[in-house]
Design a protein around this nucleic acid. Structure first.
Length: 520
RNA sequence: GCCGCUAUCGUCUAGUGGACCAGGACAUAGGAUUCUCAAUCCUAGAACCGGGGUUCGAUUCCCCGUAGCGGCACCA
């Protein structure tokens, strides 16, 4: 059983990205689980960069990791840029450490030199697959005599260091969420620990670093489950105590299949920020993907602030099965947080979003293609941002009208355009349902304009339209709609009266006249 | 192919050997409100993968099947 007494003590957790250029939204969920646990237990959150794959390593990779953390507002207690007592925090700077520990395993007889060429291994694997066998190392170098080994090394033969996995018996471990898992040793490959370029492999580096950095809880994606027995065997070979193990299920694509896609970067963490999802909403949504509080502790509406999440979060309540990533609920949360904010704060947030996210150059963007909606957003933002910011009072007056229709901030340019454009674009279709739209609009406006010139009182204004609608034999709603299309260029808009009041008589007059011209 | 993990409304999930004809949220539909679209409020439909056990009783425990996921690299 999991030892509960120490479960929340001396907590040190870590997230270990590879510097491949950009970060994935699914990773953010795992980061959140680590982060929440650290905060909850007054522990430390550590960032370690796993750059042991020389080929996949990318220029600016570490910076792009940092900019993601910064944009998501995650504070790092120890890491490459902030330092800490257990550094260095970049694996390529720790090669001598791995070398030393691999020698320890060699001495203990838990590891061995392997001189097999990559070509031989490839051939071996192909044959095994052809013969429907499990592809794994055949142990050719496992029992070389020390003399042979020395001779080969002297002769300059390249080698790797492999773990000597027992041929019989079982390896067992206990996972906080899954309980005991047991694997036959004969199915575990003699894992390479140190590659021929003297870089460690992932499994080895992780064990050594987690041990040296005193990591208390290993919270990492389900994709590592299969390599966990190897991890355990390395811990056992060293005689080290294993940290608590938590392997949250993967976040899956909305179609329900497969790990959340990495292709094209459409699920890049930064894209969600660029789309205008607020951090509050993102965290709220992500936290609930694979974890939930009990009914007793939870809120019925599932709205949780970061503080509440910290209070309620518990690694032991993480689910076992994968969750699909459907943005509907994210939209809902985002709308909620937008509506909850007062207008001035929302305005601040919008401008911050534009400066720090939308129009900001990220290192990650070098490795992510801009999607069509992003290109359009950037273009629109460049056009409207100065106008929005230029007259903040006007902007803040508009916000309450649009904020309850807003799912994410990227919708703003479209939603607000008629408040800022000099000309509107009309569509014939919008007038189809009205008989004699042009004349009615003309007469209506002729009657309404003098009323508005006198006063903007809601009742007189509304009454004028109703009276005219009766005269024309129209449904009242249709008359409102006609005017709406004329003044906003669209059939769905915030309440007509408020829109017109903000636009002002001059602008309304100009739009209506444009519209009449359009109808001719 | 082999190994491991998993399986509750469309989706995210709660829950338990009897208090569950299974609770919440999102989405959907209908209604109220209304100048449209929203927002808000109300209502409705919607699930324990299949088959065997164990048991007085199983959605809950066990086995098998099925399906999904993950992995099987000198990637992480």
């Amino acid at each position: 059983m999991i030892d509960d007494t120490n479960f929340t003590k001396d907590v040190r957790v870590r997230f270990c990205p590879s510097p491949t250029g950009w970060m994935h939204i699914g990773s953010m969920r795992n980061i959140l689980f680590n982060y929440l646990w650290a905060k909850k237990c007054n522990g430390k959150f550590i960032l370690r960069v796993e750059d042991t794959d020389v080929e996949r390593k990318v220029e600016g990779g570490i910076e792009s990791i940092y900019e993601n953390f910064a944009a998501y507002g995650i504070e790092i207690d120890e890491g490459p840029q902030v330092g800490g007592d257990y550094g260095p925090y970049v694996q390529s700077e720790r090669l001598d450490i791995y070398k030393k520990y691999s020698e320890e395993l060699l001495q203990k007889g838990s590891a061995y030199h392997c001189f097999c060429s990559e070509d031989r291994l490839k051939e071996l694997r192909e044959n095994q697959i052809k013969n429907k066998q499990q592809p794994m190392y055949d142990g050719k170098c496992r029992d070389l005599s020390p003399d042979d080994v020395q001779k080969k090394i002297k002769a300059g033969e390249k080698y790797v260091i492999r773990l000597k996995v027992p041929r019989t018996g079982f390896t067992e471990y206990e996972d906080v969420n899954h309980g005991k898992v047991r694997v036959k040793n004969e199915l575990i490959d003699d894992q390479i620990l140190l590659k021929s370029d003297e870089y460690p492999t992932y499994v080895f580096a992780v064990v050594v670093d987690d041990y040296l950095m005193k990591i208390s809880h290993l919270i990492r994606g389900e994709e590592y489950v299969s390599s966990t027995p190897k991890t355990i065997l390395i811990y056992e070979a060293f005689g080290w105590k294993m940290p608590y193990l938590i392997q949250p299920p993967n976040v899956l694509n909305p179609d329900g299949r497969k790990k959340l896609s990495k292709r094209g970067g459409s699920n890049a963490a930064l894209k969600f920020l660029r789309k205008g999802y607020l951090l509050e909403a993102l965290w709220n949504f992500l936290a609930l993907l694979g974890w939930s509080p009990s009914d007793k502790d939870g809120n019925p509406d599932e709205i949780y602030s970061m503080d509440e999440l910290v209070k309620l979060f518990d690694l032991r309540r993480i689910r076992k099965s994968g969750s699909r990533f459907l943005p509907d609920k994210l939209d809902h949360f985002n709308g909620h947080y937008i509506r909850e904010m007062d207008d001035s704060e929302l305005a601040d947030r919008i401008f911050e979003w534009i400066d720090n996210i939308v129009l900001h150059d990220f290192v990650s963007d070098k490795y992510l293609e801009l999607l069509d909606w992003e290109k359009k957003l950037i273009e629109d933002t460049k056009k409207y941002h100065p106008l929005w910011k230029g007259k903040r009072e006007y902007f803040e007056k508009i916000l309450p009208l649009v904020k309850e229709r807003l799912h994410y901030l990227a919708e703003l340019p479209e939603l607000l355009s008629f408040f800022y454009d000099e000309k509107l674009e009309y569509s014939k279709d919008d007038f189809k349902k009205f008989s004699n739209a042009k004349d009615n609009l003309k007469t209506l406006w002729a009657e309404l304009k003098p009323v508005l010139e006198k006063s903007w009182e809601h009742e007189t204004w509304e009454n004028t339209i109703r009276v005219y609608a009766d005269k024309a034999g129209w449904k009242h709603g249709d008359m409102f709609m006609l005017l709406r299309v004329a003044v906003t260029g669209r059939t769905a808009s915030p309440p007509l009266f408020e829109c017109m009041e903000i636009l002002g008589l001059e602008k309304c007059d100009s739009f209506v006249n444009d519209c009449i011209k359009f109808l001719e």
